[in-house]
Lab assay of single mutants.
Amino acid sequence: NQASVVANQLIPINTALTLVMMRSEVVTPVGIPAEDIPRLVGMQVNRAVPLGTTLMPDMVKGYA
């Protein structure tokens, strides 16, 4: 099963992502693939992302 990117903490709206904010986990539904974590660093979320939430492509500005 493919691992997805999951929020390791509450990520406030418009926050630029850092490695410490994300972890990989096998979840359903599948979100952004864990191998894209390096690409996500520095990108901003367009909404608040609660701890444990799977990051979906539409949550990250410029990802989709």
Results as ranks from 00 to 15, higher is better:
Asn14Leu: 08
Thr54Lys: 07
Ala16Trp: 07
Gly52Pro: 00
Ser4Ile: 02
Lys61Gln: 13
Gly31Val: 03
Ile37Thr: 10
Gln44Glu: 08
Ile32Ser: 02
Lys61Trp: 15
Glu25His: 10
Glu35His: 12
Ala7Gly: 08
Pro57Arg: 10
Thr18Val: 11
Val60Pro: 01
Arg39Cys: 02
Ile37Asp: 00
Ala48Phe: 05
Arg39Glu: 03
Thr54Asn: 03
Asn8Ser: 11
Ile11Phe: 02
Pro38Ile: 11
Ile37Pro: 01
Pro29Glu: 07
Ala7Asp: 00
Ser24Thr: 07
Met43His: 09
Leu17Ser: 00
Gly42Asn: 08
Gln44His: 08
Gln2Ile: 09
Leu17Asn: 00
Arg47Trp: 13
Met21Asn: 11
Met43Ile: 10
Ile32Gly: 00
Arg39Pro: 04
Pro38Lys: 10
Asn8Tyr: 10
Arg47Leu: 05
Thr18Glu: 05
Ser24Ala: 15
Asn1His: 12
Thr18Phe: 12
Pro33Trp: 13
Pro33Thr: 12
Val49Leu: 04
Asp36Pro: 01
Ala7His: 00
Met21Arg: 04
Gly31Met: 03
Val5Asn: 01
Glu35Met: 05
Val26Lys: 15
Leu19Val: 07
Met56Ala: 13
Met43Pro: 00
Gln44Leu: 07
Gly42Phe: 04
Met21Ser: 13
Pro38Asn: 13
Val60Ile: 12
Asp58Phe: 15
Ala34Trp: 06
Pro33Gln: 08
Pro57Lys: 12
Leu51Glu: 15
Pro50Leu: 14
Asn14Asp: 11
Asn1Gln: 15
Gln2Phe: 10
Gly42Trp: 03
Leu40Tyr: 04
Val20Gln: 07
Met56His: 14
Met59Gly: 07
Ala7Lys: 00
Gly62Trp: 04
Met22Leu: 11
Leu55Gly: 00
Leu55Glu: 00
Gln2Pro: 15
Asn46Ala: 02
Gln2Asp: 06
Pro57Gly: 14
Asn46Asp: 11
Val20Leu: 14
Pro50Glu: 07
Gly42Tyr: 04
Met21Tyr: 11
Pro38Glu: 07
Asn14Ile: 04
Pro12Val: 13
Glu35Val: 11
Arg39Asn: 14
Lys61Ala: 09
Pro33Asp: 06
Ala48Cys: 03
Leu10Ser: 10
Thr28Arg: 03
Met43Lys: 14
Pro33His: 11
Ala34Lys: 14
Ile13Phe: 12
Val41Tyr: 06
Asn14Glu: 09
Val5Thr: 15
Pro29Asp: 12
Leu40Val: 11
Val30Cys: 03
Asp58Asn: 07
Thr53Pro: 00
Val49Lys: 01
Ala3Asp: 10
Ile13Arg: 06
Glu25Thr: 07
Val26Thr: 08
Leu17His: 00
Arg39Phe: 05
Asn8Met: 09
Ile13Gly: 03
Lys61Glu: 07
Gly62Pro: 05
Ala16Phe: 05
Leu10Gln: 08
Ala3Ser: 09
Arg23His: 12
Val27His: 05
Ala3Val: 07
Val6Gly: 02
Pro50Ser: 06
Arg39Ser: 12
Met56Arg: 15
Leu55Pro: 00
Asn14Val: 09
Tyr63Gly: 09
Ile13Thr: 14
Asn14Met: 04
Ala34Ile: 13
Met56Leu: 10
Leu51Val: 09
Gly42Lys: 04
Ala34Glu: 07
Gln2Met: 13
Ala34Gly: 11
Pro33Ala: 15
Arg47Phe: 10
Pro57His: 12
Val41Ile: 07
Met43Ala: 05
Gly31Ile: 03
Lys61Tyr: 10
Met43Cys: 02
Arg23Thr: 07
Arg47Tyr: 15
Gln44Lys: 10
Leu55Thr: 01
Val60Ser: 01
Leu19Tyr: 12
Met22Thr: 04
Leu17Val: 10
Thr15Phe: 09
Leu17Lys: 00
Arg47Asp: 14
Pro12Arg: 04
Ile11Pro: 00
Tyr63Asn: 14
Leu55Val: 09
